[in-house]
Design a protein around this nucleic acid. Sequence first.
DNA 1: ATTATTTCTTAACCTACATCAAGTGCCCCC
DNA 2: GGGGGCACTTGATGTAGGTTAAGAAATAAT
Lengths: 194, 194
Amino acid sequence: MPLNLILQNIAKHINLTKEEQDVFTAYLQTKKIKRKQFLLTDGDICKYSAFVTSGCLRGYTVDKGGIEHVLNFAPPDWWIADMYSLLSQKPGMLNIEALEDTEVLLLSKANQEKLYLEIPKFEHFFRILVENSLVASQQRLIDGLSLTAEERYNNFCKRYPTLIDNLPQKQIASYIGVTPEFFSRMRSEMIKRR
Amino acid sequence: MPLNLILQNIAKHINLTKEEQDVFTAYLQTKKIKRKQFLLTDGDICKYSAFVTSGCLRGYTVDKGGIEHVLNFAPPDWWIADMYSLLSQKPGMLNIEALEDTEVLLLSKANQEKLYLEIPKFEHFFRILVENSLVASQQRLIDGLSLTAEERYNNFCKRYPTLIDNLPQKQIASYIGVTPEFFSRMRSEMIKRR
DNA sequence: ATTATTTCTTAACCTACATCAAGTGCCCCC
DNA sequence: GGGGGCACTTGATGTAGGTTAAGAAATAAT
């Protein structure tokens, strides 16, 4: 069980005693997900936050026309959940699927609430975590309103350099909001212009 | 000073003693902003979260071509800040401007940090506040990727019914991501189809 | 190693929305 | 109350990205 990674992630924002670490880690469950398997399916109620220790997940929605739209990727050291469903405990719209064999540590909403009571530092930790997510989400919203697809792709490469090597092109295309065809064309034009 | 409104806002998520209320309210400053005046200008460092007690603010960015893109509105009972700049204490991209004469209560980042230490319940309050913001931001992101402008406008009317009566059309257009010309045309076509 | 499936590439054609421009209507301010 | 400026409307034209389709290349499965 690779608890070191999650303890380091937590230690970015809060200091836990050894005892507190034990309390925290006792609340976690390990889960392995094979490539193409789902951690969460749209219409389900999201009961866990997941912390990725190896592999890669993607969160995506499917629109009326059956087109998939990637909301987020989660490589190692990242958290992922359907936030709407997790908070409201209502059926959500997000599918969370493994892009490759993946291992996660699951923290249930119930255990998360217990953590807040037993170790209030976790209020602080998750506030900061969500604040940073909000900043990234708003930045992406602004990008979608004001930048061309090329500019969005450039930003993606700058912000998440470690992701681009292993992510399939069609997933990157979906994340920046264009079709695979357009993405392919755009990239070859960018290369011609070098 | 209309402290009742903000105390009610806080009471949605946390219970404060009378003493705690006094500590909290002592940290607030009142500010009046005339229509068209700025609370924050892009390039500045955001030092406050603002709670609107009357009037209406809008947060927007300006792109390379000089086009404004509305990120958020803040009518009464809403919080607003440039989250990136507030968290990082680096110059931000958001302008916050009054759409009408507005009154806000300001909570500085420094005071906010003090609050967390003196009344840790505020960690809980702001975590929930930011979580809800994240959900709304992600939903808007997904809408922008998967819906037509009409559908986005319909969602806007459903989610924020109290906003549409008083907001100028061009601001709504900017929020849903279309030009004023297209918005005007789209609306008259929707009316024809009734 | 071979086959099946998926991903990527490329070309032709299409479309939701943008841009430009000008006129009308409305609101704000003096 | 009136003038000026801004918001809204409308028409013509343009464009960033989508759709359709087919072939090539790469990857997965056996």
